[in-house]
Design a protein around this nucleic acid. Structure first.
Length: 434
DNA sequence: CCTGGAGTTGTCCTA
DNA sequence: TTAGGACAACTCCAG
C-alpha cells in the first residue's frame, strides 16, 4: 500500500476549481478522494430528503469524472471520526486535505478529526474554498469585524484582486489521483433514502439573467433569479467562478454573493446567532408561539394568498422565491408572533439550498433581531407586497388556484390588527433600549 | 476623541 | 392624488 493523501469532499462536490483538492494534488503524493455520509446528520432526515438525493447525484457525477483519470471516489457511511479511522486503516494515509466549513458543528467535527489524526502523526489541512473572503480577511481598520453590510461590502469590493477569483487549475494535476479500480458507491436506498426523479435547478446560468437580475429578481412569477443557491451550498459550483462571471454584469448580483460571505463571516465571529438573537434585547420578545397558527403557516393555509403561495411553493419544490421568503418570514414573526427559530427550522428542513449562515441571517433580518436587520416597525403588508410584486396574481394563481373561491380560508388574522399587536409586543420587549 | 452621515429589499398617515 | 415625514432612536463606521 503506497503512502497517499486523502482529499475529503464535504460541501465542495466538484473537481474543477477546488482549492483543497488543488493543494492535495500538488502535494507530491497520490490523492485518494473520499466522501462520508455523516450518520449523525442523515439519521435526522426524512427518507425522501432531496438534498441527500442531490448529494448522491453529485457523487455519481464525480465518480464518472474520476474514472476518466483511472481514479475512484471512496464513499463511506458512518460517523466521520469512525470512518476516518477506517480510512487510515485501509490506506497508508500521510495527510488529509479538505476545504473549510464555518458552521459551529463542522468546526467542532474538524477539530476532533484534527486531534485524532494528529495522534497518528497524520496532518489535516483545510483551505478556503467556500467563500471569497473568510474570517478576518475583511475587517474594519481597528481590527474588529463588520456588523453592517454596506460598509462591509465596500471594503470587500476594495479588497478584491483578480487573483481572488482565479480558478485553481485542479484538472491540470489530475494524473496525481491515486489509481485504483472503481469502487461501488452505496445506493440511495442502501443509505435509507428514496428519491423519485427530480429536476434540480440547472448549474448553467445565462449571462442575460445576471445582467437583468436587478430588474427582474423581485417578481416571483418571473424566472428572474439564478436558483444557484443549491449549487453554492454543496459546492457543485465554484463561488469564484460565479463571482468572476457576474462581477462586470451586475453589481446587485455580486452583492448577493457578498451577502453570502457576510453571513458566513458573521456566523464565524458570532456563533451565538445559531441559538439566539444577534441583538440580545430581541430575546425578550413574548412570542405567542401558537402551534395551530404555525401549522397553518407551514401548510400554506393562512388565508393570505401571497404567503400561502410561498409556503406551497416551498413544500412542493424545496425552493421559494427570495421576495416571498421575506414576506412569509415577516408574516410568521410579526403577524403571528411566532419565534423566528421555528420558521428558521422549517426552512432548514425544506429548502434545497438551505445554508445555516444564510438562513439564520435571513430570518434574523426578517425578525429584526439580526445585525443590520429590518427595523421592527417595518412590517410587510402582504397585500401591498402582492400589488407591487405580483400585480397580475400570476404567482398566486400558480400555487393557490382556489384563492378567490369559497374553498379558500379567510385571513387568519386581519392585517391592521396584527400590525398593532406586533408593535405593542416588540415595543414591550425593547423598552429601555438594547 | 469627536462628529456627522448612514443604515437591503417598508408602511401608514397627513396635508 | 400624491409627496413627504413619522415610525425609534441607536449604533456603526470613517474621517
Amino acid at each position: 500500500m503506497p503512502p497517499i493523501h486523502l482529499f475529503w469532499f464535504r460541501r465542495d462536490l466538484r473537481l474543477s476549481d477546488n482549492a483543497g483538492l488543488y493543494h492535495a494534488l500538488k502535494s507530491g503524493l497520490p490523492v485518494q478522494p473520499v466522501f462520508i455520509f455523516d450518520h449523525d446528520i442523515l439519521q435526522h432526515l426524512p427518507r425522501h430528503d432531496r438534498r441527500v438525493q442531490f448529494i448522491h447525484q453529485a457523487l455519481v457525477a464525480l465518480q464518472t469524472e474520476l474514472a476518466q483519470w483511472g481514479a475512484t471516489l471512496d464513499v463511506r457511511h458512518g460517523t466521520p471520526r469512525a470512518v476516518m479511522q477506517d480510512l487510515c486503516a485501509d490506506y497508508a494515509v500521510q495527510g488529509v486535505f479538505a476545504n473549510r466549513d464555518y458552521e459551529p458543528s463542522a468546526i467542532a467535527r474538524d477539530k476532533d478529526i484534527y486531534h485524532d489524526l494528529q495522534a497518528k502523526g497524520i496532518t489535516f489541512r483545510a483551505f478556503k474554498d467556500h467563500v471569497i473572503f473568510e474570517k478576518n480577511e475583511v475587517i474594519k481598520a481597528d481590527g474588529t469585524p463588520y456588523t453592517v453590510f454596506t460598509p462591509y461590502a465596500r471594503k470587500w469590493r476594495s479588497a478584491l484582486q483578480p487573483f481572488h477569483l482565479q480558478a485553481y487549475p485542479t484538472q491540470s494535476y489530475a494524473q496525481n489521483f491515486y489509481q485504483q479500480a472503481p469502487k461501488a458507491m452505496p445506493s440511495l436506498s442502501a443509505l435509507g433514502f428514496e428519491g423519485a426523479p427530480f429536476d434540480f435547478p440547472s448549474i448553467e446560468v445565462a449571462p442575460d439573467l445576471i445582467a437583468q437580475y436587478a430588474a427582474q429578481r423581485d417578481y416571483p412569477a418571473k424566472n428572474g433569479t439564478s436558483k444557484l443557491g443549491v449549487h453554492l451550498r454543496f459546492g457543485t459550483l465554484s463561488v469564484r467562478q460565479l463571482a468572476a462571471q457576474s462581477q462586470h454584469l451586475s453589481d446587485i448580483f455580486l452583492n448577493e454573493l457578498i451577502w453570502r460571505d457576510f453571513y458566513q463571516m458573521i456566523l464565524w465571529h458570532f456563533p451565538h446567532v445559531v441559538d439566539g438573537a444577534f441583538k440580545p434585547a430581541y430575546n425578550q420578545i413574548a412570542w405567542r408561539n401558537d402551534a395551530d397558527d404555525f401549522a397553518r403557516w407551514c401548510e400554506g393555509q393562512t388565508g393570505y394568498p401571497i404567503v400561502d403561495a410561498g409556503m406551497r411553493e416551498l413544500n412542493a419544490t424545496g425552493f421559494m422565491h427570495n421576495r416571498v421568503r421575506m414576506i412569509t418570514a415577516s408574516f410568521l414573526t410579526k403577524h403571528l408572533l411566532i419565534d423566528w427559530r421555528w420558521g428558521e427550522r422549517y426552512f432548514a428542513q425544506r429548502l434545497l439550498d438551505f445554508d445555516l449562515a444564510a438562513n439564520n441571517g435571513g430570518w434574523q433580518w426578517a425578525a429584526g433581531s439580526g445585525c443590520d436587520a429590518a427595523p421592527y416597525f417595518r412590517i410587510f403588508n402582504p397585500y401591498l407586497q402582492t400589488d407591487k410584486f405580483d400585480g397580475q396574481a400570476q404567482y398566486i394563481k400558480q400555487w393557490v388556484p382556489e384563492h378567490q373561491s369559497s374553498a379558500y380560508p379567510p385571513p387568519m388574522i386581519e392585517h391592521a390588527q396584527a400590525r398593532v399587536r406586533c408593535l405593542a409586543v416588540y415595543g414591550q420587549a425593547l423598552k429601555g433600549g438594547n
